[in-house]
Design a binder for these strands. Structure first.
Lengths: 152, 152
DNA sequence: GGAGATTAGATTACACGACATGTATGTCGT
DNA sequence: ACGACATACATGTCGTGTAATCTAATCTCC
């Protein structure tokens, strides 16, 4: 198997296993990794529109976060209200419960990051991120992440 | 944003964008990346059972390839027939059309691998695969890939 | 040879992810 | 002011991704 092919499958495998780990850790909170991403973004930047949120999401590529957000509003974690200026816009913000949950999410994510750091022991993590950054540069998911890093 | 967090999102972004690229390239053939993975595996090893296939799949983690295979049989790319020895087993094999399609998939994947190699220009690809291999070692998707590499 | 555990596979439920389409609401050129 | 266009969001469809549950065949052990 050529190196590029192995890399392709390794990225797929790593994403799957990482997501599975996070999903299990988040299960007690009753939310999924994608939903956690939304909550964490809303905590960092209050008052985003749906589209503004989509521009920052790596998951779901910002195509249409409506449904993702729908579930969060229906369980009372996110507040949505129509903008006064432009009634097409919808302003999103965390509810108090959403804010509380956000703290728990941070702790769970920290656990994950610690285990990533542990797995990176002896490897050049910076070199890996540099390669991946180059690969996704200019594509939607890469741009979303870049926006997160610079302004986050 | 700490390095581990960026890495997590980079892996997610890379997987998404890579999958999107491959999906677009495969669209003319009328199949998806997951389906292509099944066809390629069946080309390498004729006559697998459903479970045996699942053990080799990085996508869908082998949990229930039934659905995935169902679509391929319904469009006449894969042949399934109950084993004579153990009627719980189902033997899978490519039809002639599936075999033909497999050749086209190989060409499309080669294009993808060439662009991965191009993106890896100036980066230490071996170091990256080594890290990811360590991360998924011992987990289902990692084991599936290991089986593919050794015996494939 | 028969009861119970084990296994293979199918089925189902729920949520994403990608894409296409629909529907208001706003903006701009004339 | 009016119509063409663009924007912001909603909805529908299909194919995964994950886990739980179900059925049936086989194996084990007595």
């Amino acid at each position: 198997m050529r190196p590029a092919e192995e890399l392709r499958y390794l990225i797929l495998a790593a994403q799957r296993e990482g997501n599975r780990l996070l999903a299990q850790a988040l299960r007690p909170l009753g939310i999924t990794p994608s939903q956690a991403e939304v909550i964490r973004i809303l905590q960092d930047r209050q008052s985003l529109t749906l589209n503004g949120l989509g521009d920052l999401l790596v998951c779901e590529s910002g195509n249409s976060p409506s449904r993702l957000v729908d579930r969060l509003t229906s369980v009372g974690l996110v507040d949505r209200q129509v903008s006064a200026h432009d009634r097409r816009h919808i302003e999103l913000s965390l509810t108090e419960e959403g804010l509380r949950l956000s703290q728990q999410i941070i702790e769970i994510e920290d656990d994950l990051y610690r285990s990533i750091d542990a797995a990176a022991e002896g490897h050049d993590l910076a070199a890996i991120t540099a390669f991946l950054r180059a690969f996704v540069a200019g594509r939607p998911a890469g741009e979303a992440l870049a926006r997160r890093i610079t302004a986050g």
